[in-house]
Simulated assay, not measured.
Amino acid sequence: MRLPPLIIGDLKAKVPIIQGGMGVGISGHRLSQAVANEGGIGIISGVQIGYREPDFETDTEAANIRALKKELRKARQLSPKGIIGVNIMVAVSDYDKMVKTCIEEKADLIISGAGLPLTLPKLVEGSNIKIAPIVSSAKAASIIIRQWEKKHSRIPDLVVVEGPKAGGHLGFHLEQLQSGNEQLENIVPEVIKVVKTFEEKYKRKIPVVAAGGIYTGSDIVKFLKMGASGVQMGTRFVATEECDASINYKNAYVNSKKEDIKLIKSPVGLPGRAINNKFIKTAEKHRIAPTKCYNCLKKCDPKDTPYCISRALINAVEGNLDEALIFVGSNAYRVDKIVKVKDLINELVTEAESEN
Rank of each mutant, 00 (worst) to 15 (best):
M1H: 13
G9K: 10
V15S: 03
V15R: 09
G21Q: 03
G25W: 01
V35F: 07
E38L: 08
I41Q: 06
I41M: 03
I43G: 00
I44C: 07
I44Y: 05
S45L: 01
I49H: 02
I49K: 05
E57W: 09
R66P: 02
R76V: 02
K81S: 14
I88P: 02
I88H: 00
V90C: 07
D94R: 13
D94N: 14
E104Q: 11
E105Y: 00
A114T: 15
A114G: 10
L123R: 07
V124Q: 01
G126R: 08
N128E: 11
K130R: 15
P133T: 12
I134F: 01
I134V: 15
S137E: 07
I143C: 01
E149F: 11
V160D: 05
G167W: 05
H169I: 15
L170N: 09
L170F: 08
G171L: 13
F172M: 14
L174G: 10
Q176K: 12
L177Q: 08
N181C: 04
N181T: 05
Q183Y: 02
L184K: 14
E185W: 03
N186E: 13
I187F: 02
V191Y: 02
V191M: 11
I192P: 03
V194K: 12
V195C: 05
T197D: 13
V208F: 03
V209Q: 06
A211W: 07
G212I: 15
Y215V: 12
T216G: 11
L224V: 06
Q232P: 04
Q232M: 12
T235A: 04
F237Q: 01
I247R: 10
K257Q: 14
K258C: 01
I261S: 13
R273V: 13
A274R: 08
N277R: 07
K278L: 02
K278D: 01
E284H: 04
H286D: 14
P290N: 11
D301P: 09
I309M: 11
R311F: 02
A312V: 06
A312C: 08
A316D: 01
E318S: 11
L321R: 12
V328A: 10
Y333E: 14
E347V: 01
T350M: 03
T350Y: 04
